[in-house]
Amino acid sequence: PQEEYKKRAKKALKKGDEDTAREALKRAGLSPDQAEEFIRRFL
């Protein structure tokens, strides 16, 4: 589910792994723009 992928993305970002985070967010159904926004907000 979407929440699970978002959790995964946050874990990846904590490790500084933005590529894995983007992949997880893409799987969560976010557009690339939404994924970038999510990452920017998190960092």
Results as ranks from 00 to 15, higher is better:
Lys11Trp: 05
Ala24Leu: 15
Asp33Lys: 11
Arg40Trp: 09
Arg27Met: 15
Ala24Gly: 03
Leu13Thr: 01
Leu30His: 03
Glu23Tyr: 03
Lys11His: 11
Pro1Thr: 14
Arg40Pro: 02
Lys10Gln: 12
Arg41Asp: 14
Arg41Met: 11
Gly16Leu: 04
Ala9Asn: 01
Asp33Met: 11
Pro32Asp: 13
Glu18Gln: 12
Asp19Met: 12
Lys15Gln: 14
Phe42Thr: 08
Gly29Glu: 03
Leu25Pro: 00
Asp33Thr: 12
Glu3Met: 07
Tyr5Val: 05
Tyr5Pro: 04
Glu37Thr: 05
Ala35Phe: 03
Lys6Trp: 13
Lys15Phe: 10
Lys11Gln: 14
Asp33His: 10
Arg22Glu: 02
Lys14Thr: 12
Lys10Ser: 08
Glu37Phe: 04
Asp17Phe: 05
Asp19Lys: 13
Lys10Glu: 15
Lys15Met: 14
Lys10Pro: 00
Ala35Pro: 00
Pro32Met: 09
Ala12Glu: 03
Phe38Lys: 00
Ser31His: 06
Ala9Leu: 03
Arg8Phe: 10
Leu43Tyr: 15
Gln2Thr: 12
Ala35Tyr: 04
Ala12Cys: 04
Arg40Ser: 09
Glu4Met: 09
Arg27Ala: 14
Asp33Tyr: 08
Lys10Leu: 14
Glu18Gly: 07
Gly29Gln: 03
Lys26Ile: 12
Leu43Ser: 08
Leu30Ile: 04
Glu23Met: 05
Lys10Val: 15
Leu30Val: 04
Glu4Phe: 10
Pro1Gly: 13
Pro1Val: 14
Arg27Tyr: 09
Arg41Trp: 11
Ala21Trp: 02
Ala21Val: 03
Ala12Val: 03
Asp17Glu: 06
Lys11Leu: 09
Gln2Gly: 11
Ser31Met: 06
Ala28Phe: 03
Phe38Cys: 06
Ala24Cys: 15
Ile39Asp: 00
Phe38Leu: 05
Gln2Trp: 13
Arg27Gly: 09
Gly16Thr: 02
Ala12Ser: 06
Pro32Val: 11
Lys7Gly: 07
Pro1Cys: 14
Ile39His: 00
Pro32Glu: 13
Phe42Tyr: 12
Gln34Arg: 05
Ala12Pro: 01
Ala28Glu: 02
Ala24Ser: 08
Arg41Ala: 12
Pro32Gln: 11
Gln34Asn: 05
Lys14Gln: 14
Gly16Ile: 02
Lys6Asp: 05
Phe42Ala: 09
Lys6Ser: 05
Glu3Lys: 09
Glu18Leu: 15
Glu36Thr: 06
Pro1Lys: 14
Ala12Phe: 05
Lys14Tyr: 11
Glu4Lys: 08
Glu37Leu: 05
Ala12His: 05
Ala12Tyr: 06
Tyr5Phe: 12
Gln34Gly: 05
Lys15Trp: 08
Leu25Val: 01
Ala35His: 02
Asp33Gln: 13
Ala28Asn: 02
Lys14Pro: 01
Ala24Gln: 14
Glu36Arg: 05
Arg27Val: 09
Lys14Glu: 15
Asp19Pro: 10
Arg40Lys: 13
Lys26Asp: 08
Arg8Thr: 12
Leu30Arg: 00
Lys26Arg: 13
Ala21Met: 02
Arg22Val: 04
Pro32Trp: 11
Glu4Tyr: 11
Lys11Ala: 14
Glu23Ser: 07
Ala24Lys: 04
Lys10Ala: 12
Lys6Arg: 09
Leu30Ser: 01
Glu18Met: 15
Lys14Asn: 09
Phe38Thr: 02
Ser31Thr: 14
Asp17Gly: 03
Lys7Ser: 10
Arg41Asn: 14
Leu30Phe: 12
Phe42His: 08
Ala12Leu: 08
Lys15His: 13
Ala9Lys: 01
Glu4Asn: 09
Ala9Glu: 01
Lys26Leu: 13
Asp17Ala: 04
Arg41Thr: 10
Ala28Arg: 01
Glu23His: 07
Lys26Pro: 01
Leu43Ile: 09
Tyr5Glu: 13
Lys15Gly: 11
Gln34Phe: 05
Ile39Met: 05
Lys11Ser: 13
Ser31Ala: 08
Leu13Gln: 01
Pro1Asp: 15
Phe42Asp: 03
Ala9Gly: 02
Phe42Trp: 10
Arg8Gln: 15
Glu4His: 08
Asp17Ile: 03
Glu36Cys: 05
Glu18Pro: 11
Asp19Val: 13
Arg27Pro: 01
Arg27Thr: 09
Thr20Asp: 07
Gly29Arg: 02
Asp19Phe: 12
Gln34Ser: 06
Ala21Cys: 04
Ile39Leu: 05
Phe42Ile: 09
Arg8Val: 14
Lys15Ile: 13
Lys6Glu: 13
Leu25Asn: 00
Ile39Cys: 03
Asp17Ser: 04
Asp33Gly: 09
Ile39Thr: 01
Ala24Ile: 15
